[in-house]
Design a protein around this nucleic acid. Structure first.
Lengths: 202, 202
DNA sequence: TTCATAACGGGACTCCAGTTGCGTTAGGCG
DNA sequence: CGCCTAACGCAACTGGAGTCCCGTTATGAA
C-alpha cells in the first residue's frame, strides 16, 4: 500500500476529495465513539459517511490506517500550553486539560479507541507516539521555566515531569477503571510537582 | 449469554471440558500475542486449539468473552507482595515486577491486547478492573505498614500510592511509547515514595 | 458397569466485509 | 473554456466468520 508515486488524495487534494475525507473522518469518529474499534469496519464507515465503500477501502485500506489519518488531523489542533508564571498552576492547568479531554463524552471514547487501535497495529502506534511526543514537548517549557526560576533542581527532565503528571490520569482511564475527577487531576499535578522539586527527575 | 441455569462448562467441568478450556485459552493467548485483538477471531482460535469451532462459539461466544475468561484465569496466579521492611524497597520491588511483566515477550503483548479489548467491551473492562483492584489491594499493605512505621503521613491512601507507582509504566507502555527500562521503574518508585512522604495522598 | 445427558464436533448454510472491474464525475492545468 | 485523468461510485463477486442442525463422545452419578 501507499505506492511511491501517488497515494490516492495526494495529487488532487481539493474539492470533492477534501469533502470525502472530511465526511469519512467524521463518520469514523462517530463510529469509534459509539462502538469502539472492535465494532467498526470500513464498510460501515462508508455507509455512515454516505460515500462509496470502494473509496474508503482504496484510500485508507484498513481501520488502523483510517485511525492513523485521524490522528494526523487531530495533531494539528493542539491547544497552547498554560503560562501562569508558576509551576504548580501550570501543571494544574495541564492536568485539568487532560481530565477534560478524557472525561469528554466524545473525546474520551475516541482516545480510548485510538489507543486500543495502536495496541494491535504498528502504524497506528507510531502515529500515536508522534502525537504524544508533540504534546509533551509543547508543555515541557513549563518545567524548564521552573528550573530557570530555581523552583526545581537543575538538570530536571522536563518531558519526564509532564509524563509523570499525565500517567495517573491515563492509568485510571485505560487500566484500573477508577473514577476520573478533579481531585485525581489535582493530586497528579501536586505529586508531579513534589517529585520534581525533590529531584527525582534530575 | 450465560443463562441463569447452565452456561456450558459449569455442570461437567472436568475431563474433556477442562482440556478443551485449557487448549482454547492457550491458543487464544498465542493468537493475541502475535496478532493483537484486531487480528483475532474465534474461528482461528478454534483452529489453533484443534477444537471444534462450534464449541468455541458456544462456550465463549465472542472474543471479549474469551478474553474475560483469560483474565479470570490469570487473576488466580497473583504473585505475593514484597515484605522487605521498608517502603522504598517494597515499592522498588513492585515497580520491578510490573516492568518485568510489561517487558516480557509474552506477557507484554498479552496485557496490551487485553487492555485494548477492554476499551471496546464493557464485560472485558469489568473483568480488567476487578483484576487490577485485586492486585492493588494485594500491594497496598506495603504502604499501610509504612504509615504504621511513621514513614508516611497518617491517613495516606495506600491504593492511590500503588496506582501512582504503576501509572508511569503503563503510560509509557500504552500511550507514549517511550522506552521501558529499569531506570524508569526506579524513578516511578522513588517518585511515588516522595509524593507519599510529602503527604500528597493523605 | 450402566445410563442420562452435558459437552463436543462435523458439515452445510447464511451473511456481509473486503475485492475487483469498469463506467462516471469533477479537480486542476493549459 | 476544454482536456486529461485522478478520484469516486456502482454492481457483481469471493472468501471466510459466525450460525444451525444433528449425530457422537464421554462425564458424573447411581
Amino acid at each position: 500500500m501507499n505506492q511511491v508515486t501517488g497515494a490516492p488524495g495526494t495529487s488532487r487534494p481539493g474539492g470533492r476529495t477534501a469533502r470525502v475525507r472530511e465526511a469519512v473522518l467524521r463518520a469514523a469518529g462517530d463510529a469509534l465513539v459509539d462502538k469502539g474499534i472492535g465494532g467498526v469496519d470500513l464498510a460501515e464507515v462508508a455507509r455512515r459517511a454516505e460515500v462509496g465503500k470502494t473509496t474508503v477501502y482504496r484510500r485508507w485500506g484498513t481501520v488502523p490506517g483510517l485511525v492513523a489519518d485521524m490522528l494526523a488531523e487531530m495533531a494539528e489542533s493542539s491547544l497552547p500550553r498554560a503560562r501562569t508564571g508558576a509551576l504548580d498552576t501550570d501543571l494544574a492547568a495541564l492536568a485539568g486539560l487532560i481530565l477534560k479531554t478524557l472525561a469528554d463524552a466524545r473525546q474520551g471514547p475516541l482516545f480510548r479507541a485510538i489507543i486500543a487501535a495502536a495496541a494491535s497495529d504498528a502504524q497506528t502506534a507510531a502515529a500515536l507516539h508522534r502525537f504524544y511526543r508533540v504534546r509533551i514537548e509543547e508543555w515541557a517549557p513549563c518545567v524548564n521555566e521552573a528550573v530557570a526560576r530555581g523552583d526545581v533542581p537543575e538538570g530536571t527532565d522536563a518531558a519526564e515531569v509532564v509524563r509523570a503528571l499525565s500517567a495517573p490520569l491515563y492509568y485510571r482511564f485505560l487500566v484500573s477503571g477508577d473514577p476520573l475527577d478533579a481531585g485525581v487531576a489535582e493530586r497528579a499535578a501536586v505529586a508531579a510537582s513534589a517529585a520534581a522539586r525533590a529531584g527525582v527527575y534530575a
